[in-house]
Write a protein that binds this DNA or RNA. Structure first.
Length: 253
DNA sequence: TGTATTTGACCTGT
DNA sequence: ACAGGTCAAATACA
């Protein structure tokens, strides 16, 4: 409700620069909330208080995610023309279709442990990129025909802690841990070093930053985390609905 | 021995 | 032709 007002005012009155600042601020709030959640919940005794706290924090997290998505779709979203083949011909769902469709990305210092379990199936040196790209798919790819995949690539910068561009492709169809928002609280630099992609118990400690990536093209991932990306076959709003939880949909509209 | 990861080959889109 | 995504045999590891 509050976020609905926020969305209306920002999408109609803010300049392009303001949009970026607003998204940045909301993402910071989002990340801080997640950190608070990670710190607070384990310290609370199991029971109704913990459940209430969890629910409130999750709602804050969802609302902030929603705000960013709606800011993006409210005028500065960028739908690429790549969802159509050359000459405007729609691309078919081929076996090795380029993966710029139905994808969204984030920049994070914690590219793993995002609530889903992944298995690595490939690694590739990317032209002109300093660091290789790692390819992961949901571990339920076979069992439940889950199409979700993600790529992880270290950002070519001196950021401390190191940042990674994580590009998610396709929604999970598996019945796994219930989280659709790809933000995490685990120190995953160590995980990357270990080349370990399966989820373990989250821990806290390091300063970690996660923010939505804004970019013009996922298929040509920029190595500076500047622009927020949502590249989808659907229109921006529908893209969000495919991304978000169903209950988030009903909570807002 | 079973499972996960590595890595070069292969395939497809641009 | 090239770049990027996936496959699958080889390898590592618990």
């Amino acid at each position: 409700m509050e976020h609905k007002n926020l969305l209306v005012s920002t999408s109609t009155n803010l300049s392009h620069c303001d949009h970026h600042l607003a998204i940045k601020e909301i993402n910071e709030a989002h990340e801080l909330t997640r950190q608070l959640r990670a710190v607070l919940l384990p310290s609370l005794p199991a029971g109704s208080l913990a459940e209430v706290a969890r629910e409130i924090l999750d709602n804050i997290i969802k609302s902030s995610s929603l705000a960013v998505f709606m800011l993006q779709s409210g005028g500065h979203g960028h739908q690429t023309s790549k969802q159509h083949g050359q000459g405007g011909r729609p691309m078919l769902d081929g076996h090795k279709r380029r993966k710029s469709q139905n994808a969204w990305s984030i920049v994070t210092s914690v590219p793993y442990e995002d609530g889903h379990q992944w298995t690595k199936y490939g690694q590739k040196r990317i032209n002109s990129a300093k660091y290789p790209r790692y390819y992961h798919r949901c571990i339920y790819h076979k069992d439940q025909d889950c199409p979700a995949t993600k790529t992880v690539q270290k950002v070519d910068s001196d950021a401390d802690p190191p940042e990674f561009i994580v590009v998610y492709h396709m929604q999970h169809r598996c019945r796994s841990i219930d989280t659709h928002i790809p933000f995490v609280m685990e120190s995953a630099e160590a995980s990357l070093v270990k080349n370990k992609s399966r989820t373990d118990t989250p821990s806290s400690g390091d300063t970690q930053m996660t923010h939505l990536l804004l970019s013009d093209e996922i298929s040509n991932i920029p190595l500076t985390p500047e622009q927020w990306n949502l590249d989808n076959d659907l229109d921006p709003v529908m893209s969000f609905f495919e991304f978000a939880d169903a209950d988030l949909f009903t909570a807002v509209f």
